[in-house]
Write a protein that binds this DNA or RNA. Structure first.
Lengths: 405, 405
DNA sequence: TCATTTAGTAAATGATGCGGATTAAATCTG
DNA sequence: CAGATTTAATCCGCATCATTTACTAAATGA
């Protein structure tokens, strides 16, 4: 049970101030005071401590002066150099890594197209470690300047325990991957999280859901993921487990029995089916080269009937699941993200149609379904943001209960 | 944005102390101090204020003395007479009302078997008002002693706005039922909430989920409801909407297309189908008398094939939905509640089997599915508890930031 | 009777947020 | 160009609160 003492008070208010500075860029103390509804005095005290700790910096010449009179505002912003973090995104066929500063600006990024599946955990950890070290060097930094590393991966992840319960990446279950990496990074703490949670946070911080406190993110990649933002907080299941959307059961395309969503609508299943129905055609070659998805996208633009039917089934299955999620959460926005969405309307149109058909009338218009095409390193940026989020809220150095120096 | 000030601190700690007293019955200050991790002094101060306000009372003669030496503990407990509240549960065919004291002990209860469907809102409000007044009188109280009224009803309810978005009870949507009743009760504030939320809270306070901070409640009555307890808090969708489980889409029994869960597994649908397949038999009469569910239960015990098949379909559909919910929330416990469960294993066994079949292996054992048969007035007790919960947390009289008198 | 033990309270201390007065730094005005 | 005005930020004093330390209360045990 968290007991409320003055220290907690300070921590809460400090977080609010940090959050306002992060969200509203260079911002004057008065405006922080307005937005947070804290008194000017309190804001002054907190920002003084933050400046003292080097977490924020002043930015004289405020630029736009709203009223031409009076003492000019001193703008405050995050000190980009206050901390550096690394974000990693693991996908079955590629590792993406990004180094960012305290403002979540990407300083360097790295993409390693490596097939991770079937590799032992230690090999994967080695690859990630090498990539992280390389990426840090690329950014002109050294390991001891790094405040934290966050690794996002598909599947069921228990963040607080640092354990990956199940993932297409690992052959085994219950992999303590956070500890595995922390051990390799010489004192730098690594955390893990579900990859969708990272996109969800990224959407909240930089993306289409800025300022929106309730929304869902559906990631459609080799696996399927669900991120839930609820009341401005990432929703995690009991024990901090992240749900795996692919494990949801849906109405199958054959119209008979039931099927796991992952077996109908994930990139993995789409590729497998596409390959099956294109065997013996001129297109088969692309699948052997690992260029299957490009071929599917290409054939979708030419409206190849088999592919269209296949994508329609996938879209309908996703629509079924999403309709149920909207029924449960009534979110004002649903964001679709992930590489598979390159297939475009052939996938998304049946999805929207199915959601429209299945949603109860009372919820017909609550959710705005949007597609967000993102570059790969943004996922890694989301991972970095996850670490920064902890740093912002952490009892930082002396910013805590006023250690006198 | 909620700013943290000393007053908030006090409110939080006061709530923790109240919660400890509520949960652990007669309890000494030392033990509160242990459990809440607040200092003995703080507990002393807070309990003094609570005593002063009459919210708790001392209970000398502590009873069991753990160590035979030392100054005896003074036990504290909720003052039953500190406040009285009324809980109401609306079902399509009956109104249940209960008056409780501050400890949520039921003082009087009332059950009105009235068919509410198709009645105009004002008529329903009149009926509820009359029932409330009657129930208060039965408890030996008067209206001005009542601190609050909470009405639970099936469907989609927006608690904070006091609006029922959609319900089988009302013919219309967006009914401002809370305002409707508050206007009739002469100053006593009425709130509304989804009926499952009330059971969920009741399970958390008095039921099978005491001390459990994550669990789901599935209510199977004329309608279907879902209650979610997450991190010790009732989970509500965006805008404070409560989800309606009946609107979820499931795999239909015919194995083709998809169907709304309510059309397969609610008591309404079960009765309709049972009536259809029993037309022309000796059993038909029971349905005309409105005794359909009793007849279904009776036939289930004799394993009548039609009924068994029907209940099996319903159980499978529920299992499908519940498997998906477990995938999403990974709750350690799922509680099934509601009148329809009287059908027993004919319904519950297929449900368990389906959940077992559909759950991904990684989640196979996380959730314990239990059935809870409850009497009707317990639902109303849950409604009362919902009001008490607000009272416990409210800035009470002078217990707030020390108004000097 | 008096030491011992446990429960509960009082006084002192320090952290915190807030309101009102004050200072700082610019523009406006005559 | 000097003083008035305006807006931003800070200083000072106060009230609240939780905590630590010392103390009192009320029982048992020797």
């Amino acid at each position: 049970m968290k007991t409320a003492d003055p220290e907690l008070m300070r921590a809460i208010n400090r977080f609010h101030v940090m959050d306002a500075i992060r969200r509203f860029g260079p911002i004057a103390r008065v405006e922080i005071s307005d937005r947070t509804e804290l008194s000017a005095t309190t804001v002054s005290a907190i920002t003084a401590a933050l400046l003292d700790d080097g977490l924020i910096i002043t930015h004289q010449l405020g630029g736009i002066r709203d009223a031409a009179r009076g003492r000019p505002r001193v703008m405050l912003e995050l000190n980009p150099a206050a901390a550096y973090v690394v974000g990693v995104k693991l996908a079955p066929d590629q590792i993406t890594i990004a180094t960012t500063n305290f403002r979540a600006d990407v300083l360097s990024s790295l993409m390693l197209p490596i097939r991770l599946q079937r590799q032992p955990v230690s090999v994967i950890a080695d690859l990630v470690e090498d990539g992280i070290r390389r990426c840090i060097t690329d950014a002109g930094l050294t390991m001891d300047q790094i405040s934290g590393v966050c690794i996002g991966l598909p599947g069921v992840v228990e963040r607080v325990a640092g354990i990956c319960r199940a993932s297409p990446i690992f052959g085994e279950n219950d992999v303590p991957f956070a500890a595995e990496l922390t051990a390799r990074l010489g004192g730098v703490v690594a955390t893990i999280d579900s990859d969708v949670n990272l996109v969800t946070l990224a959407e909240h911080w930089f993306g289409q859901a800025r300022g929106l406190d309730d929304f869902l993110v559906i990631s459609v990649e080799l696996g399927l993921g669900l991120g839930i933002m609820h009341n401005g907080e990432l929703f995690r299941g009991a024990n901090g487990l992240s749900p795996d959307l692919g494990d949801l059961m849906v109405r199958p395309p054959s119209g008979n029995g039931s099927a796991r969503l992952a077996s109908v609508a994930s990139e993995t299943s789409i590729l497998a089916e596409a390959r099956a129905c294109l065997t013996g055609t001129e297109h088969e070659h692309a699948f052997r080269l690992g260029r299957g998805m490009e071929k599917v996208v290409e054939l979708a633009t030419t409206r190849e009937p088999h592919i269209m039917a296949l994508l329609e089934h996938a879209g309908e299955a996703l629509g079924f699941a999403i309709a149920n999620l909207i029924t449960l959460f009534a979110p004002p926005k649903v964001i679709l993200a992930g590489a598979t969405l390159a297939a475009g309307d052939a996938l998304v149109e049946p999805l929207r149609r199915t959601v429209g058909e299945l949603l109860p009338p009372s919820l017909a218009d609550v959710a705005d379904i949007v597609v967000h095409h993102w570059s790969d390193d943004i996922w890694a940026r989301g991972a970095a943001a996850m670490t920064l989020r902890d740093l912002y809220g952490a009892p930082w150095n002396t910013t805590g209960p006023a250690v006198h120096r």
